[in-house]
Design a protein around this nucleic acid. Structure first.
Lengths: 101, 101
DNA sequence: GGCATTCGTGCATGGTTGTGCAATATGCCA
DNA sequence: TGGCATATTGCACAACCATGCACGAATGCC
């Protein structure tokens, strides 16, 4: 578990960067912008093995970007922080300016 | 070279994520928030080999986050986009909410 | 209890990334 | 021209990451 007293600020920020460093994880975040979803929904949406989805969600969870709760046999995932969509839009803006300039 | 017509939005966004996925690169960006800097300044500041600095800057450049110009024997680096500090502050805000909640 | 569904994890494998050292460019100045 | 500082690249090696398969845990339904 990252600990701010032993890790640099950059190390913690790069943890979030690592979480965003895979297309599947970015897509998971974007899908979760619409609201809570069951993990099994992502399997057909992303076309990935359930174990792969599970691991990507674990990475996002460790970075503090998503959270989960159990509902019977399912696990429902949501964005953990209200400012995550803002981060994603910052990323998208950078992308746009990269393409247009 | 990434091409938006053949790559998904998520793939392009994750390119920026990859650029942020290393503490040294985050630190480079934060140092460049203060303004233009010669690459050789980073060697003592980060305590890394010049070749390593060079490669990290190349990653940031490929992601469109930094740009450079030559000044004699030196190469001066700067943030390529005015909204990069905003992205970094979004990251820092997420970190804060991660620690406090 | 028996069974199906959903998740997470151990393991093996292939691919990517980070690093240090040496060698090579590039530009400045004497 | 030679010498110096800065920057990049080739190479080899270690470390890390992503993936698929198989298996086990938790839950709900009959």
């Amino acid at each position: 578990m990252p600990n701010s007293s032993t890790e640099t600020v950059e190390a913690v920020l790069s943890t979030i960067g690592k979480a965003l460093a895979h297309p599947a994880r970015v897509e998971l975040l974007r899908l979760l912008e619409d609201g809570e979803r069951c993990g099994c929904e992502f399997v057909p949406l992303l076309g990935l093995d359930p174990s792969v989805i599970s691991r990507h969600l674990a990475v996002l969870s460790r970075a503090g970007l998503v959270a989960s709760r159990r509902d019977g046999v399912r696990i429902l995932w949501r964005l953990a922080r209200p400012d995550t969509p803002r981060l994603l839009s910052c990323l998208a803006n950078l992308r746009c300016s990269r393409e247009s300039g």
